[in-house]
C-alpha cells in the first residue's frame, strides 16, 4: 500500500529538514519518529485531546490531523523549541511554579496551545483561557493550576514586553 514518496522541507525549531515521506505520514509521526522530537505526544485518534499540539507558522495545530506534506515549507515549533539558551520560557516556568502539571503527558500540547493564545491575547481573562485550552484535555490537574500557570506566563511576558519598550 506504500505509495510514491514525496520530498518535503520543514523548519522545525529553527533547523531545516528535508525528507522523503509517504504522503499519508502524519506530522506528529514525522516529528516523533523521523526527528525524534518525542515531546509532542499522541493521546487520541479523533482530534480531541490536543496532546499533539504544535505551532505551525505560528498557529496552534493538532499535529495528528496534519499531513507532513501539508506542512511542506512550514515553520514548526514544538515544546523542544520553547526554552532559550536552556532558560525556561515563561510558560514552562509558570507550569512549574503553579504546579500546572502532574503526569506531564498533556503538558507540551497545553504549553504550545497557550503560547498561541498569549501571542494573540496577551492579557486573557480566566474565561478566555478556559475556552482557549478547551481543545486540550488534561486528566490529572482539574485545570485549576493550568489556568494559573498561563496567567503567570501572561504576567511575565507582559512585564518583559514593558521592560523592552521602556529600555
Amino acid at each position: 500500500m506504500a505509495t510514491q514518496k514525496v520530498t518535503v522541507t520543514l523548519t522545525v525549531n529553527g533547523t531545516t529538514h528535508t525528507a522523503e515521506v509517504e504522503p499519508r505520514l502524519l506530522l506528529v509521526h514525522f516529528l516523533r519518529e523521523h526527528l525524534n522530537l518525542t515531546g509532542t505526544h499522541i493521546g487520541c485518534d479523533t482530534t480531541h485531546c490536543g496532546a499533539c499540539t504544535v505551532l505551525m507558522n505560528g498557529r496552534a495545530v493538532k499535529s495528528c490531523t496534519v499531513l507532513t506534506v501539508q506542512a511542506d515549507g512550514a515553520t514548526i515549533k514544538t515544546i523542544e523549541g520553547m526554552a532559550e539558551n536552556g532558560q525556561m520560557h515563561p510558560l514552562q516556568e509558570g507550569f512549574h511554579v503553579e504546579h500546572g502539571l502532574q503526569c506531564g503527558y498533556c503538558t507540551p500540547g497545553m504549553i504550545m496551545r497557550a503560547a498561541e493564545l498569549l501571542a494573540r491575547n496577551p492579557d486573557p481573562t480566566e474565561e478566555e483561557i478556559r475556552w482557549g485550552i478547551s481543545g486540550n484535555l488534561c486528566r490529572c490537574t482539574g485545570y485549576v493550576n493550568i489556568v494559573k500557570a498561563i496567567q503567570y506566563a501572561a504576567r511575565k511576558l507582559r512585564e518583559r514586553e514593558q521592560a523592552a519598550a521602556g529600555s
Binding site: 516523533r32 518525542t38 515531546g39 515544546i79 512549574h96 507540551p108
Partner: peptide, 21 residues
C-alpha cells in the same frame, strides 16, 4: 516544594513508553 520531576516534562524530555525506540 516545587516538583523535582517537572523539568524533564517541561522541556519535552519525558520518557514515556512510546518515546523509546
Amino acid at each position: 516544594m516545587k516538583r523535582k520531576e517537572d523539568a524533564r516534562f517541561l522541556f519535552g524530555k519525558g520518557r514515556y513508553v512510546d518515546d523509546i525506540k
